[in-house]
Amino acid sequence: MDFEYSDEQQMLADSLRRYIDEQYTFEQRRKSAVATGGFDRGIWNALAEMGVLGLNVPVAFGGFAQGAESQLIVQRELGRGLVAEPVIPCAVMPAAVLDAYGSEAQKDTWLPRVATGESTLALAYLEPASRYDPRNVRCTATRLDDGYMLDGRKSLVWHGACADGWLVTARAGDTVALFLVPRDARGVASKDYASMDGQRGADLHFSNVKLPASALVGTVTSGLDALEHGLDHGIAAQCAQASGAMERLIEITRDYLNTRRQFGQPLAAFQALQHRLADMLVQKECALSMAYVAAQALGEPDACKRRRMVSGAKVTVAKAARHVGQQAVQLHGGMGITDELSVGDYFKYLTMMDVLLGDTDYHMERYCAAMID
């Protein structure tokens, strides 16, 4: 993988950083989170115009067909600005699933609208007792003459309430299949709520939801493969976004230590604090390196090797995120836990990074299982 930005990638990164610095201030972010639940249509449209939402969508469907390297660059900048809009759950992961496993009709219907920001999708695969395991599915899809009938519950659907449709896993006989369920399907109920870091989750309840046969994504036996494909893309994007958030948080902490004075000199003059800031920088660099590993894994044809690379990256980045977040709060002293500063927002985001898309325990088990296979 080439670590140097191309001219086009540098321009994209610069335009995103400029947009975030000038139009996505922390005051704007917090106001948007309260007023719109983290989904501001104006910001979403601006991201679409800059090519963020259609970055990995094929050109034939209105996207830009960029690779994992460009996605890493974009997510790193979004992480620096702690952009709350659901780019990963509602654009990156659904687009990856439909591009690889969707029918031509599904691609024609959804991918152009995802790329332009007109419509959003979300993955609904977790259940109250699933413990991150996508194979643990109790939601059922009963075969009908003209389609399927969906029954069951999904929980913790990342930004599920703002989605125009969901990619839902359901047990179809002895296999797990994936279905595209539109929001207006009869028999669907949703409950929206806020998470600790200001993002949104939703619980979905499906009661005798009738779906046409065309709602099936891929084949009846490819549901888990399709879901894993989308989750791996999401984790790679998440690792890049967390690396960007750590990078910006270290800059904020450095500036604070240079400004805050104690005993007649700035805090940055104390060697013990310099060492702690250096440790944060080392952890950030490790996380960024593993973000590149996760991005590279998306093109790996060996499924076991890809799982090892992605899960290894997730565990390493989550550990670094906890360290950087906690150190930043401590180095800010009592101010670090107040709403007056943005440090707390970064700390909450970096803390939640561990549990989103599978926590450390789950990915350690996944890594070990891939080693055995």
Rank of each mutant, 00 (worst) to 15 (best):
R307V: 05
Q327N: 14
T316K: 09
A303I: 09
A328H: 06
M309G: 00
L331F: 04
G299M: 07
D302H: 10
A318L: 07
Q327T: 12
G333Q: 07
H332C: 06
V315R: 14
V310E: 01
V310Y: 07
P301H: 12
Q330G: 07
Q330K: 14
G333V: 06
D302E: 15
G312R: 08
S311Q: 01
V315S: 01
A320H: 03
L331H: 03
R306N: 01
A328G: 11
H323D: 11
K305S: 08
G312T: 04
S311I: 05
L331R: 06
P301R: 10
H323M: 10
K314C: 13
R322N: 09
V329Q: 00
A313E: 01
Q330L: 09
V315N: 12
Q326N: 15
G299R: 11
V329R: 01
A303Y: 00
Q327V: 04
R306K: 14
A303S: 13
V317N: 00
G299S: 08
G325I: 02
A328Y: 08
R308T: 03
D302V: 12
K305A: 11
P301L: 12
K319Q: 14
A328F: 01
P301T: 04
Q327I: 10
A321D: 03
A328W: 05
A320C: 15
K314W: 13
V324Y: 06
R308L: 04
G325F: 00
R322H: 13
A313D: 05
E300L: 14
R306W: 06
A303R: 00
Q330P: 09
Q330I: 05
V317Q: 08
Q327A: 15
H323I: 09
R306G: 01
V329P: 04
G333A: 03
R307Y: 08
P301K: 13
L331Q: 11
M309T: 02
A313C: 10
A318T: 07
A318V: 11
H332M: 15
V324Q: 07
Q327L: 14
A318K: 00
K319I: 12
A328V: 10
S311P: 15
M309R: 12
V310T: 12
A318S: 15
R307I: 05
K319E: 10
Q326K: 08
R306F: 11
V315G: 06
R306S: 04
